[in-house]
Computed example of a mutant assay.
Amino acid sequence: MKVWAVANQKGGVGKTTTSIALAGLLADAGKRVVVVDLDPHGSMTSYFGHDPDALEHSCFDLFLHQGNVPQGLPKQLLHGTSHENIALLPSSTALATLERQSPGQSGLGLVIAKSLAQLWEDFDHAVIDSPPLLGVLMVNALAASQQLVIPVQTEFLAVKGLERMVTTLAMINRSRKQALPYTIVPTLFDRRTQASMSTLRVLRNTYPDHLWPAYIPVDTRLRDASRAGRTPSQFDANSRGVIAYRALLKHLLSHQPAAQVA
């Protein structure tokens, strides 16, 4: 299994859309994909038609065992989605209480890694949608992943969020055996605006070694796909956004660390 996390310490930059678009394209290609919603807001869970306020069981259940994960529990928590090749580990609002509960509990940072280990033979890819906040949930996402995708809206405040994310990643890398590779993805790009154009220039000048050279454009079809509860490529395979995400997926697959290439 290849495990990717999608994260940024700023909200509204396209994390959930990016997670679902990439998962959908992998699933279209016949890959078995599990998507993991670690955001207490539950945007990914809601996208696929499940109510994070009403779910009796969710990813939260994985954190209730002092850092251990009972055998078989991750599989019991899986939900179906609009795509036959995608399964969902859903979020619930209870995840928001983890930060208050976690002090004094050791081992909580590896819960998702341990959970995915139990699903290793059942899926080809895992895509983790992270919360926009440094805490036990983001630490879990980064600890479990082999590759990090950082969506960055092409506007000034999002660049400041990226700076915080890169600082966080440096801190996380000090506790990993090897540094986590990451790719910065410009999102919500509108070439008609000076803000998008200037932000893209800043990203290219500041992060040349980690920046995907293209961008995800503003595309209302992505929002329409969300409303329909279908992956963007299911909804409109030839939309501008999907074409861009297809190029991003090709880039990510070709730039995986050698040991992870199938």
Score class of each variant (00 low, 15 high):
A126P: 06
A126K: 02
V127W: 09
V127C: 10
D129S: 12
S130P: 11
S130G: 12
S130Q: 11
P131T: 15
P131H: 13
P131L: 11
P132H: 08
P132R: 08
P132V: 05
L133E: 14
L133T: 15
L133P: 09
L134R: 14
L134T: 14
G135W: 12
G135C: 13
G135E: 12
V136D: 06
L137Y: 07
L137P: 06
M138A: 13
V139D: 06
V139S: 09
V139T: 15
N140Q: 08
N140S: 09
A141P: 04
L142M: 10
L142K: 02
L142Q: 05
A143K: 10
A143Q: 13
A143D: 11
S145H: 02
S145D: 00
Q147S: 12
Q147F: 15
Q147G: 08
L148H: 02
V149T: 11
V149E: 05
V149P: 01
V149F: 10
I150Q: 03
I150S: 04
I150R: 04
I150P: 05
I150Y: 01
P151N: 07
V152C: 07
Q153S: 15
T154M: 04
E155I: 00
E155L: 01
E155C: 00
F156I: 09
F156E: 10
F156A: 13
L157N: 08
L157A: 10
A158Q: 04
A158L: 02
K160L: 10
G161L: 01
G161W: 02
L162D: 01
L162W: 03
L162V: 04
E163S: 08
E163I: 10
E163A: 11
E163Y: 03
E163H: 09
E163R: 12
M165R: 06
M165N: 04
M165Q: 14
V166G: 03
V166T: 01
V166L: 02
T167N: 10
T167G: 06
T167A: 12
T167Y: 07
T168W: 00
T168C: 05
L169K: 05
A170T: 11
M171G: 13
M171F: 14
M171S: 14
I172V: 15
I172L: 11
I172C: 08
N173W: 03
N173G: 08
